[in-house]
Design a protein around this nucleic acid. Structure first.
Length: 254
DNA sequence: ATGGTGGTGCGACCA
């Protein structure tokens, strides 16, 4: 089965892209971020016409997460338990026997900014919660827009980005603490090359010049590692007219 | 190329 993550940067604008991509890629599960839609505006009937069910937790203008899947979702959880947060960034559900945890990690703006402190506190709360979730649900996929480039291979210009937001040691340390729970960056199970990105800035012709970062990740738990037979970044939707600044990333599970 | 684009919504903020 195919499991994907895509930051669509407004599902209102990108619904045609999502429909196109569902049709040609035929994923089983897709985690969406930055839907930017209140729940009553979520296009669940349009997606049902394409054969997909939806669960979603959105808000106006900012954030918003959803999981779109062929099979029904159960045990739906919004947010990190015990971590008060108005921002809709976390949505977990059980689908096809897998625990799917969809994340839109805080961006953080700049190292030292108050949003950066919020990002690190948020990641710490996430880690504490996931440690418990993994005990309950060994077959877990944690995926989404992590807003962290794991290492310098994931950065087009590591010197320019050194110690900058999305690349700082504290952010990478927080990601490594998540991985230490028994999670694996699926892309790195199958590829070790540099320059494979999932996000390119709209400015300065970032995509054309491949000035990107790999910040969209699919993590698989220890129990799923052996079933993970492929991991890819599908650059095609980033070439379409009026694209999201992110492109879909996906794994194939046996 | 030290600038630049895009979404929301009509300001200014966020990324």
């Amino acid at each position: 089965m195919k499991i994907a993550s895509w930051n669509v940067n407004s599902l209102n604008v990108r619904l045609p892209h999502l429909q196109q991509w569902l049709g040609q890629c035929q994923p089983d599960i897709v985690a969406l971020q930055e839907t930017k839609l209140e729940d009553h505006k979520f296009p669940d009937s349009e997606l049902a016409e394409a054969g997909y069910r939806s669960v979603f937790a959105g808000q106006k203008t900012y954030n918003g997460v959803a999981i779109v899947s062929r099979s029904a979702a159960s045990e739906v959880q919004v947010g990190i338990p015990g971590f008060a947060d108005e921002q809709k960034r976390v949505l977990a559900a059980t689908i096809d026997g897998l625990r799917i945890v969809n994340l839109y990690v805080v961006n953080g703006k700049a190292v030292g900014d108050e949003k950066y402190d919020y990002k690190l506190a948020w990641l710490d709360a996430l880690r504490q919660w996931l440690a418990l979730e993994l005990l309950r649900y060994p077959n877990m996929v944690v995926l989404g827009d992590f807003n962290i480039a794991p290492d310098d291979r994931d950065v087009h210009d590591p010197a320019a980005w050194k110690d900058q937001i999305l690349c700082s040691d504290a952010e990478r340390g927080a990601l490594n603490k998540l991985l230490a729970l028994g999670l694996h960056d699926s892309f790195r199970l199958h590829h070790d090359d540099a320059g494979q990105f999932s996000w390119w800035d709209y400015r300065a012709a970032g995509f054309r010049r491949n000035l990107g970062l790999r910040i969209d990740l699919v993590l698989v738990s220890d129990a799923l590692k052996a079933r993970c037979v492929g991991a890819e970044i599908d650059r095609e939707p980033r070439t379409w007219e009026r694209p999201s600044d992110h492109t879909p990333v996906l794994v194939e599970l046996q």
